[in-house]
Nucleic acid binder design. Structure first.
Length: 309
DNA sequence: AACCCGTGGGT
DNA sequence: TACCCAAGGGT
């Protein structure tokens, strides 16, 4: 594990000093860290709507912040409200998604905009339960929108928060995905005041993104290192994760090429031309069929494939 | 519950 | 280089 000596001095049990205690997640210091070191991101600007928060959260699902920023700006400028997006064909959402990856997210975001328009009068719902009914909105995103969009008190646990929670309060590292237990554990540290709770959540997330990272954590700059159970335990390594399959030659690669061809074309593409993206006809056929089944592509006519209308 | 789903940056 | 993995969700 890439832990530097300078960041992790093997001190001999120095006094905890003014720490809140081993395994604590002290809100005051986390919020102070956020105040001092927060990144200026477009979805954090004053005036960001709950719809803006929802769009940013969906884009950020498994996609890095730096790649999301320009896409988010263009998306919000073009579709400032859910009805604006719902009024357009879903294929336009898929095209605007560009190369963010996992284009089903674009389809689901469009479906969410439609549901918000039809069932919620065009206003993004403000309760976790209602948000959970929206396509593409899971346990994390629902709470993120409630907390960051509406300043509700909800335990927001993404991969960053889970890493901080696990390390600081349990003394172990993890690469698992968050569970209901994790949300309950975080809730213990969540300030009661809703607005402060929302700031606390984004502060923990920011700490995980900037300092308490998977790679080389910046423990020497961490505001809660004195309370960190993981540090006290000597930075034990996380359990190994199951390797993902090879990318080259995968269905995902083939699907990606087909979608890129459809996005780059102004209108429908002849199947014969589309087949040129991959030499293995069997695999190409299987992937095209899966894209049609997913609704990411449609057969607009015999032998012609396009983005959904 | 394990597996699938895109793309690209970091090392 | 090859591999990890990044503000997850759906099945």
């Amino acid at each position: 594990m890439p832990v530097t000596e300078s960041d992790h001095p093997s001190d001999d049990g120095g006094a905890p000093g003014a720490g809140a205690g081993p395994g604590a997640l002290p809100a005051d210091r986390l919020i102070a860290f956020y105040t001092d070191h927060r990144r200026d991101l477009p979805w954090r600007e004053p005036g960001t709507t709950p719809w803006g928060v929802l769009v940013s959260e969906v884009m950020l699902q498994q996609t890095q912040v730096a790649r999301v920023v320009p896409a988010y700006r263009q998306w919000i400028e073009r579709w400032p409200t859910p009805p604006d997006l719902a009024a357009e064909p879903s294929g336009e959402a898929v095209r605007a998604w560009g190369r963010l990856g996992y284009p089903r997210r674009a389809l689901r975001l469009h479906a969410a905009a439609t549901a918000i328009t039809d069932r919620h009068h065009g206003r993004v719902p403000d309760t976790v339960d209602e948000l959970l009914t929206l396509p593409g909105v899971g346990e994390y995103t629902a709470r993120a929108v409630a907390a960051f969009g509406y300043r509700r008190r909800a335990p927001v646990v993404d991969t960053n928060v889970l890493r901080v929670l696990s390390r600081a309060t349990r003394g172990v590292d993890t690469r698992a995905s968050a569970t209901a237990t994790d949300r309950r554990d975080l809730d213990r540290w969540l300030p009661q005041d809703p607005d402060t709770a929302a700031t606390f959540s984004i502060a923990v997330m920011e700490l995980g993104a900037l300092l308490c990272t998977t790679g080389e954590p910046g423990c020497s700059q961490c505001p809660i290192s004195d309370d960190c159970a993981w540090r006290a335990a000597g930075y034990p390594a996380a359990a190994a994760v199951r390797r993902q399959g090879a990318w080259a030659g995968s269905d995902r690669q083939v699907r990606g090429r087909i979608m890129a061809a459809l996005r780059d074309a102004p209108a429908a593409v002849a199947e014969g031309e589309l087949a040129a993206v991959w030499p293995d006809v069997q695999q190409w056929r299987r992937c095209l069929d899966s894209l049609l089944a997913d609704g990411l592509a449609v057969r607009v006519d015999v032998g012609w494939i396009g983005l959904p209308g």
